[in-house]
């Protein structure tokens, strides 16, 4: 709740929240909202002209189906401004039961092309989709030309190098994944050990990384570890760095992107306040200045200070590896 207030106070147009339980893809202890808190949060947002989207972006199995449906009804009764869903069965339910409630396709819905988006729009009337972090800037623009679904993209936060919704690495190691339990590399499976070889991070026993005393040791998200391939040990899948899309913000805006998403859940209110303030300023300046805008140094530095590994990447937007 303090993070929601921080986001709105520092210029967010909308905030997405999750309810407690395995109904959303950020299922971490102490993170999510009860019904009462959600109601207060929505009132706080609406009084300040901001919107609240409720994320229910897991793929419920039969055992949790009823509780997730109840959460949809709850979000509708609280007058949330939109539901963020990934599961087609849930979208069918929401579209039939609450036809006036806006539906957004979650990044977990893995929609990476216009034809999939148009299918979801025709079937469920989705109004907006969050794109997986695997598309280039040009692909985002071309996709927008061919669909009437509003497009939201990630602007700042973790870099998921795999297509969201189609990654089972976490369940392979821990038994729980974003799709099944709303978690990736969950904390309960993490173990840190000081060894003569260095500080080791393990995920359910699998060695994810080992750090020298002078190295900053990041959270062992399993795709950000160091592994050995044909004798070389390196960040074989992805370096730990945050995604920062500011360098391509003019192109994204010109291409027709309707919203920039910032990861705020799992983050402190101070983090949310700083990132929102910097992004708000960047967006306003960019909209005013047009295509030749580039991010001011203090904005980039301010975001880098909060970034994973203190550094950032454009990820797939730019694709230096292409």
């Amino acid at each position: 709740m303090p993070a929601l207030r921080a986001a709105i106070d520092h210029g967010a147009d909308a905030v997405y929240i999750g309810f407690r339980g395995e109904s959303n893809a950020r299922n971490f202890p102490g993170l999510n909202f009860s019904r009462e808190e959600a109601s207060l949060g929505i009132a706080y947002a609406h009084a300040r002209g901001a919107r609240v989207f409720v994320a229910l972006n897991v793929y419920p199995r039969p055992a949790t189906w009823a509780s997730v449906m109840a959460t949809i009804d709850q979000a509708a009764s609280l007058r949330a401004d939109a539901l963020i869903l990934a599961d087609p069965g849930l979208m069918r339910y929401a579209a039939d039961r609450h036809p006036d409630l806006r539906l957004h396709l979650s990044v977990q819905g893995s929609a990476t092309n216009w034809r999939a988006l148009e299918f979801y729009r025709r079937e469920f009337g989705i109004r907006r989709a969050v794109l997986p972090r695997v598309l280039s800037c040009t692909q985002v623009t071309r996709l927008i030309e061919r669909t009437s679904v509003e497009i939201e993209v990630f602007g700042f936060g973790s870099l998921c190098v795999m297509v969201e919704g189609r990654c089972a690495l976490s369940s392979y190691v821990t038994g729980q994944s974003p799709n099944t339990h709303g978690v990736c590399s969950p904390a309960h499976a993490v173990r840190w050990e000081e060894t003569p070889a260095g500080r080791e991070s393990r995920l359910n026993g699998v060695l994810i990384d080992r750090f020298f005393p002078t190295e900053a040791a990041g959270y062992p998200t399993l795709c950000k570890g160091r592994f050995t391939v044909e004798g070389s040990t390196y960040h074989a899948i992805e370096e730990p760095a945050s995604l920062n899309a500011l360098d391509v913000l003019p192109a994204l805006i010109q291409g027709g992107v309707k919203a920039i998403k910032v990861e705020g859940r799992q983050r402190s209110p101070a983090y949310v306040a700083t990132v929102t303030r910097l992004l708000r300023r960047a967006l306003d300046d960019c909209m005013h200045a047009g295509p030749r805008w580039s991010p001011p140094t203090e904005v980039t530095q301010g975001l880098d200070a909060l970034a994973e590994g203190r550094t950032h990447t454009l990820g797939a937007y730019h694709r230096p590896w292409q």
Partner: peptide, 21 residues
């Protein structure tokens, strides 16, 4: 061997320090 994840990035090319294209 189970196909667990997909990316825009080619990890085999990355392991060989090659551009995807």
């Amino acid at each position: 061997r189970m196909p667990l994840a997909f990316s825009a990035r080619c990890f085999t090319a990355r392991a060989h320090r090659l551009q995807k294209d």
